[in-house]
């Protein structure tokens, strides 16, 4: 192979190598790859459309038991609130002088219940409930708000389909609105 062709071949190989490296590394080559298992373990985000909801299910009746044990001390036996937020009621009050913001009256997405309970509740032991328990207690809170029948079992598909009463009142930011 003539020297100049060899040279081109070597450059081509080097060029290919640098392209491959560019795909494997960013400009500074800092950090290491995150594996799918690592990402799956940490990515607990549930989208408004229910994206990333895990397998499993939970019933309203089981949710009542979980709620009584894990939630009622702060949120009240019937979700009426206490140290923790009121969770039930308030529908139809948002445009009044005494709006009552609860899951049933205010939250636009039911799937956010699963997301928030799993990541942050109960406050003294977050991320301690099983996915089944999170589905169940979500089901019970929805049931107390009249958004799920008492004999229902909640799973990813059903939770994603629940139409929250306040879903369509959310608007973007129009500011500056004053003066």
């Amino acid at each position: 192979m003539p020297a100049h062709k060899l040279c081109i071949a070597v450059l081509a190989v080097l060029g290919l190598a640098s392209v491959t490296r560019a795909q494997e590394q960013g400009p500074y080559g800092i950090g290491r790859s995150a594996t799918p298992a690592e990402i799956a373990g940490w990515n607990i985000d549930i989208g408004g459309d229910g994206e990333n909801l895990p397998p499993g299910s939970g019933s309203v009746s089981h949710g009542r038991m979980v709620f009584d044990q894990q939630c009622a001390a702060c949120h009240g036996a019937k979700g009426e609130g206490g140290v923790g937020d009121k969770l039930v009621g308030g529908q139809g009050t948002l445009a009044t002088t005494n709006p009552v913001k609860t899951v049933g009256s205010y939250w636009p997405y039911a799937s956010t219940l699963f997301d928030y309970i799993r990541r942050a509740m109960p406050q003294n032991a977050p991320q301690s409930l099983s996915n089944e328990d999170v589905y169940a207690v979500s089901a019970y809170i929805l049931n107390m708000n009249g958004l799920l029948p008492a004999d229902a079992t909640l799973h990813a598909k059903r939770l994603s389909r629940i139409n929250m009463p306040n879903r369509n009142t959310f608007v973007g930011d129009p500011r500056p609105d004053v003066p």
């Binding site: 989208g47 408004g48 913001k101 205010y106 939250w107 636009p108 956010t112 997301d115 928030y116 959310f170």
Partner: peptide, 10 residues
């Protein structure tokens, strides 16, 4: 899309 977390909805 945004995630519509509790802190940006409720």
């Amino acid at each position: 899309e945004p995630t519509y977390s509790r802190e940006e909805t409720s």
